[in-house]
Write a protein that binds this DNA or RNA. Structure first.
Lengths: 335, 335
DNA sequence: ATGAAAGCGCTAACAG
DNA sequence: CTGTTAGCGCTTTCAT
């Protein structure tokens, strides 16, 4: 039972023409006689011929291979799932295949997947880089591979980028906490090397400073963007003397970990501790209590990124641009 | 700025050998003189040569192309994210590339992605079929493409399959509800065409029957596996006269929707309505109240599926098998 | 409007 | 141990 697919040659023979004509019938139908065309199309339908994308890609020069790569740092984070969906919808609408990988915040994986994408001759790449100085991604861009960065930018590199206003999103969140009367507010960030972790910290600090609240370094902590680290750090924070009365959690997963700790400590939200999370989630409303969160337009980011990438593929010389989307503070009852 | 990668020819010239020798150096290092090998490897490193996977795949016959396809029905459902992770980890460990797609429960998308995977000459495929009679998937299997089904089986087809004991998982959940004194228990399933929806219903009915509780068809409802339908159906259920005192939610997303409705109706869990969800989730413990759930080993499913697929690729004639993994009832406080 | 033939980058006989 | 060569399936000149 072999995987013997019909190929151009087979279709050509059945239709009594050369393979070149069949190829033309597929790619430039108006360049072939309508009677011939009809005959060819009939055969194609009959034998259910589908062009072999691998052979196509090997032959075709650039930009028309109809496949793009997407590399996300953590598929377990629902935010990136939204981004994926946005990219996917766009790709599907344009008939692009999607080579998607999750590098799970691992540099080795990222390198391997990037190598694969290059080696697979993708038309372009959408990636949330490991950090601002991601040498692998930068190298690909230098090699001229059309690339769009999402969620995280690259320092000193001209590249299309779609970001979110992290600083302002964080600022608004902390501002709200302060309005509610909190003075000891902690920030639990993700990996410190990731730009978004720093930008959100900046917004946090800015809000504090603006309200003349002392910035206590002991209240600023970074984890590894996983639920467990949120859990752990929240525990340390809440057990210290003069512990914070509010926590601003730097991402989805950290929020979840923090919540778990708060519950396991038997603390009540928002009476004992208030919490705002960066990243809204589908289940935020069903949490205990409904979570106040900074919402990022993940789907929109993905969709726009794919659109930008498409434009760049079509016109590799076009000037690169940075798009910054706004966040939205969804006020529920966790603070 | 062209994407001009070094190729075999280039390496061969630089090393002063033929391209065949370079190819051999890569694939059968022991078949080439150690001095030559050293020279070649030096050049390879120097110019950072990476074989072109597209050309490789076009040339290589079968089973060694180092790329597999993964097709999931809904990437927004965290259960499938776990499956993805399992497959991915295995693939990564074996240096396989992963062509991953989400068909969002759409038959058209599924067909397109399946076509792409075939056309991309994947070594094999892991797929959660649209339903038990998924003609596209069945067709691929008939064509001899190594395939493993996960989460959902195929009727009357010999294919490696990894499932979960849905019926028993549901049975245990409903059994618990009954023990807690509930007599009017509703079931909100996902798409009725999906095998798991039916199997879970079977388990539900079985538990009722075993306890001599009348099966009320009005209490058995199916949605479309999305959060919104959970929301909607729960609303209808809870507003009917003689409304259920407990709900068994057929999947992740339906659980979330149901929860939302319960909260928006101002009902208290488990006092006014009890709920158990099929599928545990990372945030189940942080829900209001912590959710009792039937946990499926998603990661394990993915990992085992990838392992099975690997075996089948290596030995296409081996007998196919069906693996059924057990679920685990995680009792928290929503019932 | 159509066909012949080159060639994308690679692997696998085959010959030496 | 190494080189020559055919060919995977396709697109694209270049002729006709």
């Amino acid at each position: 039972m072999k995987n013997q697919n019909p190929n151009l040659k087979y279709v050509a023979k059945k239709a009594g023409v050369s393979i070149a004509t069949v190829s033309r019938a597929l790619n430039y139908p108006d360049k072939v006689d309508s009677k011939t065309l009809a005959r060819i199309n009939k055969v194609i339908k009959e034998v259910n011929y589908k062009p072999n994308r691998v052979a196509q890609r090997l032959r075709i020069k650039g930009g028309n291979r109809k496949i793009i790569g997407l590399l996300v740092p953590d598929i377990q984070n629902p935010f990136y799932v939204e981004v994926v969906r946005g990219v996917e919808d766009y790709a599907y609408s344009r008939n692009y295949a999607l080579l998607m990988s999750n590098f799970a915040q691992s540099k080795e994986k990222e390198k391997m997947y990037l190598d694969i994408m290059k080696s697979e001759s993708v038309d372009g790449l959408i990636v949330a880089p490991y950090d601002e100085h991601d040498v692998e991604v930068i190298s690909l861009i230098k090699q001229g591979i059309p690339t769009v960065c999402v969620d995280r930018g690259l320092a000193n590199v001209n590249v299309d980028t779609i970001l979110v206003d992290n600083e302002n999103g964080a600022f608004e969140a902390v501002q709200l906490l302060i309005q509610k009367g909190h003075k000891r507010i902690a920030y639990i960030g993700g990996l410190p090397s990731i730009p978004t972790s720093q930008q959100r910290k900046e917004g946090y600090v800015k809000a504090l400073v603006k309200n003349n609240i002392e910035v206590d370094e002991k209240l600023i902590r970074f984890g590894d963007s996983k639920k467990e680290s949120g859990n752990q750090i929240a525990k340390e924070l809440l057990k210290m003397k003069n512990s914070p009365t509010a926590i601003f959690a730097g991402n989805n997963l950290i929020t979840l970990g923090t919540l778990e700790t708060i519950h396991s400590l038997g603390l009540s939200i928002p009476k004992d501790v208030a919490i705002i999370g960066f990243d809204d989630m589908p289940w935020a409303i069903s949490l205990n209590p409904p979570l106040t969160a900074v919402k990022q337009p993940g789907y929109e980011i993905g969709k726009q990124a794919a659109g930008l990438l498409y434009q760049r593929i079509m016109d590799p010389e076009k000037l690169s641009a940075k798009t910054i989307l706004n966040t939205e503070l969804i006020v529920r009852s966790s603070c």
